Simulated scan of single mutants.
Amino acid sequence: MTKKPLILITNDDGISAPGIRALIEVMKQLGEVVVVAPDSPQSAMGHAITINNTLFINKVNFDSEVKEEYSCSGTPVDCVKLAVNEILKQKPDLCVSGVNHGSNSSINVIYSGTMSAAVEAGIEGIPAIGFSLLDYNWNADFEPVKNAIKTIASQVLENGLPEGVILNVNFPKLKEDEIKGIKVCRQAKAFWKEEFDKRKTPQGKDYYWLTGEFINQDNGEDTDEWALANGFISIVPVQFDLTAHHAIQKLNTYKFN
């Protein structure tokens, strides 16, 4: 009998979020599942780790078919670190993060706790995928993307990933029969034009709410933003090696020494 793959599941919306519960439902069909996720929402935490506070993990039992589930007081990256170093007795065959409530396409990838958890798994040498749905509603419908999640995860389990590569997968908010397919893309060149809404407390103290507008500067038809706008699921291979290799030759012409 073939041994089932071990799959680590995490997210940034919290262990009780509908997105992670949907992801668990799919992954149970593919392997033995262990869940380690934040005990409260940790969106936009990026690759933050906890170094000045204690960390706690609590065993929970939301799903009797899951091998083990733990809530963690820390960030998504803390969850992966604790899973690999303290909870799991062997390295998982796959780590999946999400399904995030909201987009992690384009520049959003660098702010994302969902993707940072997947990247941390990649650093540990674990094939990893971050999944996100373009719907910020807590009660978002994840049914239309479950088959695609299963397909993508199955392919990674079967074929692996290139060394140092993590998949950033985003789903358009569409019915399953409206999704045109899956495209492997590059990250669109875009940014947030940010503003701060300045207000005052009843005591007269200034405080701020971050607001902003997403600006897509990229007209390419090979980007994640184009794919999503045109009804496709986007897959962007990302890496944790941030070296700008194309700039090395130019910088070597500078008179640093």
Results as ranks from 00 to 15, higher is better:
M1G: 14
T2A: 00
K4Q: 14
K4W: 08
I15Q: 03
P18K: 10
G19K: 01
R21D: 08
K28I: 04
E32Y: 11
E32A: 09
E32H: 13
V36N: 10
A37Y: 09
A37M: 05
P38H: 11
P38L: 05
Q42D: 02
M45N: 04
H47D: 15
A48N: 01
A48G: 04
I51V: 09
T54M: 12
L55H: 01
F56T: 05
I57Y: 14
N58H: 15
K59N: 07
V60W: 15
S64K: 12
C72M: 05
S73R: 09
C79R: 04
K81P: 07
L82G: 05
N85C: 07
E86N: 15
K89E: 15
P92Q: 02
L94G: 06
L94F: 07
S97N: 04
I107P: 02
N108A: 15
N108L: 14
V109N: 10
Y111R: 06
S112G: 13
T114S: 00
A117C: 00
A117L: 01
A121Y: 04
I123C: 05
G130N: 00
F131A: 05
D135W: 00
D135C: 03
Y136P: 15
N137V: 08
N139H: 06
A140V: 11
F142N: 02
K150R: 03
I152Q: 11
N159S: 03
G164E: 12
V165N: 00
F171T: 02
L174M: 03
E176Y: 15
I182N: 05
V184A: 12
R186W: 03
Q187N: 15
K189F: 12
A190E: 09
F191Y: 08
F191L: 10
W192Q: 12
W192S: 13
K193A: 10
E195T: 04
D197R: 12
K198S: 13
K198P: 02
Q203A: 10
Y208T: 10
E213P: 02
E213C: 07
I215R: 04
N216T: 03
N216G: 05
E221C: 07
E221T: 08
D222V: 03
A229T: 02
G231C: 11
G231T: 07
F232I: 03
F232P: 11
S234T: 10
Q239M: 09
F240L: 00
L242E: 10
N252V: 11
K255R: 07
F256R: 14
